[in-house]
Design a binder for these strands. Structure first.
Lengths: 346, 346
DNA sequence: GTGAAAGCGCTAACAG
DNA sequence: CTGTTAGCGCTTTCAC
């Protein structure tokens, strides 16, 4: 069946108008919610003709004629990372319920590429652009990105950043610092005294904030600065696996390993087991994010729950409602969730 | 500051041409790889002007003028489900390296909505549409979807379905049946004799195939038909949790629970624990997909590894290279991975 | 080689 | 309320 032959060219508004015996303008007005009203009979004829021809309006043409689109662009590092998927899910949901289509681009954790992608997406003339995550603390790269975004904004586009504070655009961030601090406090209350932080790359603002917050919490508890050692690793499962190895290698074994995200924490657990240690019993483990897919790992992972989905929704909200006058900053709270991976220590 | 004011309107090709002192046509020809050659001096001037103005071509206008786009549409049920995220990741990667932008829409596991989304995406006039997953065995819904897709194809668009065989379009599917069958065979070899299958909804073709394959494998092993009981549940973590409860409720306790996907399997493990049973020890558990994020659960989950990412890549490939003459069907293999959740039974 | 001009499909004044 | 028409930004014949 040559279903995919593609000879015929798609019906246009012109075809619909002719078929309905009305003018182009009338057809346009009845099909797309114009301010002006159309006689019911005509409108009905047009609708019927459109349905019969299975007409689908050419969005590109509409965009050109109207001078604006119903698209929204979103840039994430890696859609298979549940953190990004969570936020992206919120963006899609919000976009759809606002009648927008979402175009996505993946930067593959390559910060330089982000700027390039913004350039590419600008061509779509989307209503707004949402950038999620992994902002890098590299000045040159940041400036390139900022330039592209500013250009986009000057042309009337709106920008919303998720968990990348510091740029002069609307931002929704999560309580990384406060969440990690609270987590450290609670863990200290449980009796933990010797920590190791798997910190993620230091160029990653999110990772850095979580580390700093955790250390602050330890200080709050009146523990000495050397109560926590910091080791670094990639913000991935394998990064956690490797970093956990480093954590065990030198000096005294930590009572608790805090990984800067859940995915790393799971990697760390795997490493502990490979080293013959029992996570939760021999070494406690905590993460950050409360990724849904990982809520059933054993022992249950103590973590800080973040409303990722809401972050995505909020970003779309800012794009749609923001006046662009001065950048709005929205912070979404994190909540400590204690589970079996950090049992009370007597 | 007022970065987001949006007074100025974006520079157009017109501006670039004027700035470079050449005609619109020449500007167009030098910027976009036209067949015709442009004198190097002019071309250089145009490029320079474009860079200076930070010109970004209006993709919609190009689409209208050219009559085609560089977009590709993708429809998934739920981007936060790692199965879909895996396939989508492959689609994005392949699309990008082919110079296409990907537009995504999420159906929220609502089959009827899929057809509606195809209608919406048609307006983008994308080069192709990729539909991933959860094809439903409901004739009316399927026909509506098929109608929309046929319409799209007749207008010159290309369609690729991932894991939704049965429609007259290019399809890439995974070896659900064979994989599950092989899994059952291997489990029987390990000494298991009494199974319970958590089958997912019976309207879901993927789930059904896995169930049937598993039962076939059991028959292969010479076991009686009543060696496996089938219970149903949603294709989600909670579905697995609930179904596992049913599995334990009636009759003799199964030696092994096979969940039709990993996410359900994890839910089943959680339920076992809540019932005071130890997964792997008291009741073995197996899944399907080998979701990366779940590779570190304990005990390690026996499953069938699927090359999800490759499925996405292949779909884009079919869209780009297919001639549309007759639907191509591509099948990607699954590989059984035995882990600690199904220890040999003596 | 280059430029003028005719569209692409649609919207939005503008007259009737 | 309806139809005519001039664009939207870009590509692409078609003359030069």
């Amino acid at each position: 069946m040559g279903e995919q032959q593609g000879r015929r060219s798609a019906p246009t508004l012109h075809d619909v108008a002719r078929e309905a015996g009305v003018s182009l303008a009338t057809a346009s007005r009845s099909l797309n919610g114009s301010a002006r009203r159309v006689k019911d009979e005509y409108r009905a004829r047009v609708l019927e003709a459109a349905a019969r021809l299975n007409y689908a309006p050419n969005l590109s043409a509409q965009a050109v004629a109207r001078g604006r689109t119903n698209a929204i662009g979103i840039i994430v590092s890696d859609i298979t990372d549940p953190y990004f998927a969570g936020v992206a899910g919120g963006v899609f949901r919000a976009a759809e319920s606002a009648g927008l289509v979402a175009t996505i681009a993946v930067s593959g954790r390559d910060a330089a590429k982000e700027a390039q992608l913004v350039g590419a997406l600008r061509g779509q003339k989307p209503r707004g652009l949402v950038l999620v995550g992994s902002r890098v603390a590299d000045a040159a790269v940041t400036r390139r990105l900022e330039r592209q975004l500013a250009e986009f904004a000057e042309d009337g586009g709106r920008v919303a950043l998720v968990s990348q504070q510091g740029l002069a655009f609307d931002t929704v961030s999560f309580e990384n610092r406060a969440g990690a601090r609270e987590l450290a406090t609670r863990l200290a209350e449980l009796g933990y005294r010797r920590f190791c932080v798997l910190a993620g790359p230091e160029t990653l603002v999110t990772a850095t904030e979580r580390t700093e917050g955790f250390l602050a919490g330890i200080a709050d508890a009146g523990l000495p600065a050397d109560a926590a050692r910091v080791v670094r690793g990639a913000f991935t499962r394998d990064g956690g696996y490797a970093a956990a190895g480093d954590a065990l290698e030198h000096g005294e074994r930590p009572e608790l390993i805090f990984a800067a995200n859940d995915v790393m924490a799971v990697g760390a657990m795997a490493r502990l087991r490979d080293e013959g240690l029992e996570p939760g019993a021999d070494v406690a483990v905590a993460g950050f994010d409360d990724i849904a897919t990982l809520r059933d790992v054993t022992p249950g992972l103590t973590t800080v729950r973040l409303p990722l989905d809401q972050g995505g929704v909020a970003a779309v909200d800012l794009i749609l409602t923001g006046d662009g006058a001065s950048p709005t900053a929205l912070t979404l709270p994190g909540h400590v969730v204690l589970r079996a991976s950090t049992p009370p220590r007597l």
